[in-house]
Design a protein around this nucleic acid. Structure first.
Lengths: 109, 109
DNA sequence: ACCAGTACCTTGTGATACAGACTAGCGAGG
DNA sequence: CCTCGCTAGTCTGTATCACAAGGTACTGGT
């Protein structure tokens, strides 16, 4: 998708991942795989892990270490109450931006 | 709107401004004022000017210096052919991202 | 002379995604 | 046995971007 997508992801990727965690608990590798499958083909693994660390430090998610049959133990993340609130705020911000942009798209015919 | 909005603007503000220039030529001060009026109340002036310099250097816009009755001369920007193409690409990227997010929003309950 | 409004520019900072490399555990094939 | 491939997580350095905070310059009104 190119550089545009990269820049556009800044600020939204966090919300995307929190939104995923809102519907179900997940671990980093799983999230990366899911994103790729959804069309975010160029998501760097390191990006997802770094983001998870960030949201954990901000106290938006809870973490549980779960042993895996294949490979090293997984860090399973789940959205907590604070994360829920943050996500709500994210959707509000997104809606605002989204509306302005759709308006602009039409305006430009 | 807060920090979320700031981060979310990264990558999209460029498209927003190019979209504005697609419908009419404009200069920095004018664009800033318009954005504020549209609800982007916290847009920093410096941000807009820096962005305009960037898109000019990338050859996406043409510039014309126009004397003003009030204050220093205006730098009037207009979208050129290359900018048009870039904007089209921007809308494609935006659509992709937008669709995924709407999907996620529904999916989350 | 001063101040408000118009219009543009510059420097430094923080946040973020990416590239690329590394550690580590497990199973299968040579 | 041992290397390869997959799973899973981590780390360092880099580029981009919006912002804060300041400055420059020109005009008209008081």
């Amino acid at each position: 998708m190119g550089k545009q997508a990269t820049e556009m992801l800044k600020g939204t990727l966090e919300g995307i991942i929190l939104a995923i965690l809102a519907s179900r608990s997940a671990y980093g590798y799983e999230i990366t795989a899911w994103l790729r499958q959804q069309g975010f083909s160029e998501i760097a693994e390191g990006t997802v892990y770094a983001l998870l660390v960030r949201v954990e430090q901000r106290g938006l998610v809870d973490v549980e270490k779960v042993p895996s049959e294949k490979g090293p133990p997984r860090k399973v993340y789940s959205l907590n109450t604070q994360g829920q609130e943050y996500l709500t705020e994210f959707w509000r911000t997104w809606s605002f931006l989204s509306e302005r942009l759709e308006q602009l798209r039409d305006g430009g015919r």
